[in-house]
């Protein structure tokens, strides 16, 4: 499974990539593989305020529905609207074209509470 070193990971299989004062959020390669073919994504509303662990939306695959949890708290500033018509990008490009949303994060240091790539590899391969 692909686990890029440039970002942090939650134990719920989301990734967080810092981009200046914002972070971008998506699901991991491990998560998309376990879900199977993604056919629908319920994206959050721009402006939604979430705390870590709260729901950011839903991912529906041919076999199940799964919740997306906010890996850290913040306010949604952008969503990947391309996923509405091409949710399969979460399978084909989970770390790039398959991103879900961007968060304005009040406490940037909260990202350090997440797993680094080595820690996430240990979680999924251990």
């Amino acid at each position: 499974m692909d686990v890029p070193d440039d970002r942090r990971y939650s134990i719920d299989h989301e990734w967080v990539l810092a981009t200046g004062d914002r972070v971008r959020v998506g699901i991991t390669d491990y998560a998309q593989d376990a879900l199977g073919d993604v056919v629908y994504v319920e994206l959050p509303q721009v402006g939604l305020e979430v705390r870590a662990g709260e729901s950011l939306g839903e991912v529906e695959s041919t076999k199940s529905v799964s919740e997306i949890y906010a890996p850290i708290g913040g306010r949604v500033t952008a969503v990947n609207s391309e996923l509405a018509d091409a949710p399969e990008r979460m399978n084909s490009s989970p770390y790039d074209q398959g991103w879900i949303c961007e968060l304005d994060v009040a406490d940037q240091s909260s990202i350090h509470g997440l797993l680094d790539a080595a820690g996430y590899r240990e979680l999924t391969e251990g």
Binding site: D12, H13, Y30, A31, A34, K63, S64, S66, E67, Y69
Partner: peptide, 12 residues
Amino acid sequence: SPPAPPSGHRAR
């Protein structure tokens, strides 16, 4: 009943 997705992704 689909196989359990990774922990944290609750199947319903």
